[in-house]
Design a protein around this nucleic acid. Structure first.
Lengths: 189, 189, 189, 189
DNA sequence: AATGAATGAGGATTCATTCAT
DNA sequence: GATGAATGAATCCTCATTCAT
C-alpha cells in the first residue's frame, strides 16, 4: 500500500537499520539484504534510495556525526566559562548515548571506511576539525601556548576510549577520562 | 622442487605478505589470493599451512604483537627507575616501527576482528593486559592510588593515536603524547 | 495537471526517446527508465501506454519502418520509368536520413529483436517483402528472368551497408552502392 | 577429479559453449551461467579462465574470426589466377560452415558488441581489413581503377547476406551472391 | 612440498513491472 | 493522466576453500 512522502521515512529507517545491523553484527560484515530486512523493505529499495552500499554507509556516518554534533552543541548551550565549556564537550563526547554498542561499532566501521572511501575520510576530517576547534576554543584561555597540542591529545584520547569500548565490550571509562583531563588541566593552569 | 624445512619459511612469508597486503590495501578487503600472490605461492598453500583466513590473520596479529612485545622488552632492559621504565614503555609504543602504515592498518584489522573472532579478542586482551601490567608496575611508585586509572588512560591514549594515524595518514603525534604523559606524571607526582 | 489528448503526444515522445536512447547508447542496453527519463515521464507511464518494453521497441520499429516507407513512396511518386523507379528506391534507401546514427542503431536492435520476438520478425519480413516487391516491380522490365535474384541481392546490399555503417562509424558508402547498382543494371540490360 | 593441463580444454569448451548458447538463444541474452552449464562447468570457472563475460565473448569472436580466416586461406591455397582467387574468397565466405545458425548469431552478437566494446570494434576492423585487402588483391587485375570500391561493395554484400541469414532463418543466398559478383566482374572486365 | 582445478555460497546491483493514489 | 513506491527475479562476479595429483 504505497503512500506518498515515504522517501524521508524510508531513508531514515534504512540509515538506522544500517547502524543497528553493524552494531548487531559487531562487525563490518553486514549485507544490504540484512539492512533492508531490518528496515522492513527489499534490498532493491535500499539501492533505490541510496544508490550503493557505500552511500548508505556514508549516510549512516553522517547520521551519527550529526547526532554527536547536536549533543555537543546542546551541551555547550549557555556555557560561557572556558572550563565549563571544555567539560561540557568532554562530557558530551562520553555520554552514554555515544557509547551505545551500535554507535561505537558504527564508528569503527567509519574508521575503516575512511581508509578507502574518500568521502568518508572527508567526513571524518570535518568531524575532527570541529572537535579540535571546539576544544581549542575552550583550552586557549586555560593553557594558552599548549592549547593546540592539548586539543589533539584530548581528541586522541576520546578516540582511544571509543576504540577500547568497541573492542572490549566495556562501555565504561568515561569517568577516568574526565579525571585525566582534569589532571592535565589542573597542571596546565 | 620441494625442499626440506620449507614450512617455517612459507609461514613467515605468508604472515608478512598478509600484513603487507593489508597495509597496501589500506583496508581490510584483502583476499587470500592476494596474500598468496604477494608471498609468491598458491592460495592453496596458504590454506595448507594456516587452515583458514582467520587463522592466518591471527598469526599476523601474533607476529605484530610479538614485535611490539619485543620492542617493549628491549626498551625496558636494564632500566630500573620507575620513571625511566614508564618512559621506555611509552617510547617503545610510539616508536616509528609501530607506526609503519602496514602495522597500523593491521592493528585496525585486528580491532575489527576482535569483535567477531573470539581468539582475536583473547589475543587483544592479552596484549592489553601486558601493557596495563607494565604500565601499572611503573606507575605504582609514581602515583600510588591512581596508578590503575592512569595506566588505563595511557593505554587508551596509545590506541587513540594509533587510530588517528591509521585514519589520518599522519604518522606523527608521538611527541605530543610524550609531552602529555610527562604532564600527567609531573602532576601525579 | 493532466491534459486531454495527451496519449498520442506521450506515445510519440516515448517512441522517439526509445530511438534516441538506443542511438545514444550505441547499443541495445537501454532501459525503460532511461527512455522514460529522456521522454520526460515516469517509467510507469511508459508501461501504461505500451504495456511492455518489447511493445515499445516494436512501436519504435514501426516508426522507423514507416519513415522509411514514406521516404520510398515519396521518391517513387510521379516516377514511371522502371530505371528511374529503381534508382529512386535505392536513393531513398541510402538517404542521409536513414543513415542517422540512431536510426542505424535502431535497425541493429530490430535485427536482434527479430530473432526473439515473433512480431518483430513479422515486421521485418513485411518491410523486406515490400522492398522486394518494389525492387522486383522496377527490375522486371529491366532484367526479366533474373529480376527476383537481383532484387534479393540489392536488398542484401542495402542491409550490408547499413550494418557496416552501424559498426564502422562511417556513414558514407551510398555513392559506391549506387555505382554498383548501376553497373549491375547496365550489365543486366 | 582434477587433472593437469585442463586450461586449454576448458577455454575451448567455454568458447564453443558461448557460441552455441548464442546460437540457441538466437539472441544476445545469454548468461554466463547458461554458457558454463553447457560447457559442463561452474559459472565461477568461466570467470576464472576469462575474467569477464565480455572477455569470453571476445574470445568467441576471435574463434570465429580465426575459423573464417583459416577457411579463406585454405581456399586461396594454390590459386594464382585472380579470377579464381576472387571466387575462392567469396565461396569461402559463403561456405555452409559460415552460415551455421550459431555462427551467424555469433556474428550478430559481435556486431552489436563492436558498438560498445572497443576491443570488439578493433577485431571487427581487423577482419574487415583483411577481407578488403584480399578482395583488393584479387580485384585489381580484374578491375583496376574500380577495385577499391568493388572490394567494399563485395564486403558489404557478404555482411548483408549474413545479416539476412541471421534474421530470416534462410541460410541460402550464396549462389545468388556469386552470380551477382560474376555479373559485376563480367561487366567490369 | 606445492598447486592447478574446481566450485558453492553469497552479495551487490539492475530492471521491468505492478499498484495504489 | 500520471507517478512515487516497491519488489522479485535475475545476473555478474568474487572468494574462501577443497582435493587429486
Amino acid at each position: 500500500m504505497p503512500k506518498l512522502g515515504m522517501e524521508p521515512i524510508r531513508r531514515d529507517a534504512l540509515v538506522k537499520a544500517a547502524i543497528a545491523e553493524i552494531g548487531a553484527a559487531g562487525s563490518l560484515d553486514v549485507t544490504m539484504g540484512g539492512i533492508a530486512r531490518r528496515a522492513g523493505v527489499s534490498p532493491a529499495l535500499a539501492h533505490h534510495y541510496f544508490g550503493s552500499k557505500d552511500a548508505l554507509f556514508l549516510s549512516a556516518m553522517r547520521h551519527i556525526l550529526a547526532g554527536y554534533g547536536a549533543a555537543v552543541r546542546a551541551a555547550l548551550r549557555g556555557q560561557t566559562d572556558p572550563q565549563a565549556r571544555l567539560r561540557a564537550i568532554v562530557r558530551a563526547s562520553f555520554d552514554a548515548d555515544q557509547f551505545r554498542p551500535e554507535v561505537v561499532a558504527a564508528w569503527l566501521n567509519f574508521y575503516v571506511q575512511a581508509r578507502t572511501v574518500p568521502q568518508a575520510a572527508r567526513l571524518l576530517a570535518i568531524y575532527r576539525g570541529r572537535l579540535h576547534s571546539n576544544l581549542l576554543h575552550a583550552l586557549r584561555p586555560l593553557a594558552a601556548s599548549r592549547a593546540d597540542a592539548l586539543a589533539g591529545t584530548v581528541g586522541a584520547l576520546i578516540d582511544g576510549f571509543y576504540l577500547r569500548a568497541g573492542t572490549d565490550g566495556r562501555t565504561g571509562g568515561a569517568d577516568e577520562v574526565l579525571d585525566m583531563v582534569d589532571t592535565v588541566l589542573a597542571r596546565a593552569r
